[in-house]
Write a protein that binds this DNA or RNA. Structure first.
Lengths: 121, 121
DNA sequence: TCCGCATATGTCGCCGCGCGATATATGTTC
DNA sequence: GAACATATATCGCGCGGCGACATATGCGGA
């Protein structure tokens, strides 16, 4: 499960949402760092529905615009909970493995400024 | 940064390792759930070297077999620490978001913004 | 003796999937 | 009426995960 897909499930775990609402929720959840494109959103949504994690939850028209809602299934909720636990454990193990380094704190202020792992060459 | 790439950096953060050692370390780190294939490993390693996160650390022959060692650079260490912090925060947010169900009760609003004191460190 | 497995390196191609671009439509704001 | 936010959905590019394959040594069992 990709991180984007995970964030979508978390967003739907809070409450049923429509597509555009998921995009906004994910952006908020990730502190504005993850911005889902339309292609990403519907690809993830379709696969999640296929996996039985998400299901359509009805359509509502608000201000003349259609909202197609999705909700997490019990299976999806279990999956996202399990993934959350796995992530938390992984982070904890990583922290232990890396030990307390020189700058253990968040070093708040400047953005990390670290190069991306794929682009720079 | 993918989870596989992250795990490789964590494994190298513990201590310098050779390729096969990284595969074993990642499997251990992920509780046997993530098994790196050769293609995955060297792809990640090459990109990580290109990004300045990892560098070659010498070659040793053990039992007639060549071991090519890699080590994390200071930049790579900073990156993996930052990613660890990001992951931990994400998991914590997710737990809070999932903890308060959709319509659990009258307090459907903001999930009591009280900061979690003394988080798991 | 020889077969298979673990150790150890590396390459190649498939394809899943993230993601920007694009299309379509309505309400609001300036 | 131009620009933007809201709201939907599709298409194709390309990165990257990952299995398959190639190659080589040491070891243990049949």
């Amino acid at each position: 499960m990709s991180e984007q897909a995970y964030l979508v499930l978390v967003a739907l775990g809070e409450e049923p949402r429509h597509g555009y609402g998921v995009v906004q929720a994910v952006r908020a959840l990730s502190d504005g760092q993850v911005r889902l494109g339309a292609g990403t959103l519907y690809g993830i949504l379709d696969r999640a529905v296929g996996a039985g994690y998400v299901e359509a939850s009805g359509e509502v028209v608000v201000d003349g615009r259609l909202r197609r809602y999705y909700r997490l299934t019990p299976t999806g909720l279990a999956a996202v909970r399990a993934e959350t636990l796995r992530l938390a454990e992984l982070a904890q193990r990583a922290r232990r493995a890396l030990g307390a380094g020189p700058t253990t704190g968040p070093t708040t202020g400047p953005t990390t400024g670290l190069p991306a792992l794929g682009g720079t060459s």
